[in-house]
Amino acid sequence: MFKAKSSIQFLPSGKEGGGILPWVIAVMTYLSALSIGSGFALHNMSDLWSSELSQSMTIQISNADDESVAEQAASVLEILKSMPEVTSAELLSDDKITSLLEPWLGSGNVTDDLPIPAMITAQLVPNRHVDIIALEGKLHAVAPDAKLDGHQQWVDQLLKLSATIQATSGLAVVLIMLTTVAIIVFATNARLSAHKENIEIVHLMGAEDSAISREFKNRFMIYGFKGGVGGLVAAIITIIVFYILTKDLGDGLTPKLTLNLWQILTLGLIPFAVSLLSMVTADKAVRKALIKMM
């Protein structure tokens, strides 16, 4: 493949079947890089969500009778604090709850008449599973009005959604690859038929299939690399623009889209993978055509 190139090439250097190929490959690379990049970002986001959310739980106690609420809250706190999985538990003050509600209800609108439940938040030891059902039973025994929110359901649903989206983008990448292969096969065949005569002549002069295919392999490898780099650069620009645009959006709602070093390296490998794909596909298509000659 890297044999010194003779000054005499059996095919003219024209672009038959190849002129727009780098552009098509660039678009395909752009789409798959975005799919892969957003898949990675979503993966990281899910990790963040599941670790942040599953490290805490909330208990709500609501009853018209304030005294009963206070009593129940005290019992709940006692139980929580006795648990080894719980690092800390605290009862949110009315002021804190009011300030949490203000963004939704507007300042000054949280009146004393508004039935505000007692809120207890508990921080959990990271990565340690808490049996929510058993805990719920235990809490109900002392505080019948307690409602436990382990965030588990919320996290589970988010994770399910994110896994579905990741699978979909994986599928999209596979489809894009298959389409790219088909386009390269078309382009190779176009070049083959544009130069059928020359190929037949050198075949009859005793050129090996590998020598004939080498011309195509080198050319399509370059097409693939050009397109791959172009598409990746465009995708990176898109990701950066997206990052800048979303950076200042509500902090709690849209966790930061970040990529780690390995993921960035993986994206960097895309042009090489694309040019390899392009080269191998062209080689296969050429050999398939040559095998029809004696």
Binding site: I8, F10, L11, P12, N198, I201, V202
Partner: peptide, 19 residues
Amino acid sequence: RLLEHLTAVENVMLPMVLA
């Protein structure tokens, strides 16, 4: 069956280059 994109000399050289 000469190769149109090559000069006369290159056409003559081709079989040997391929070999």
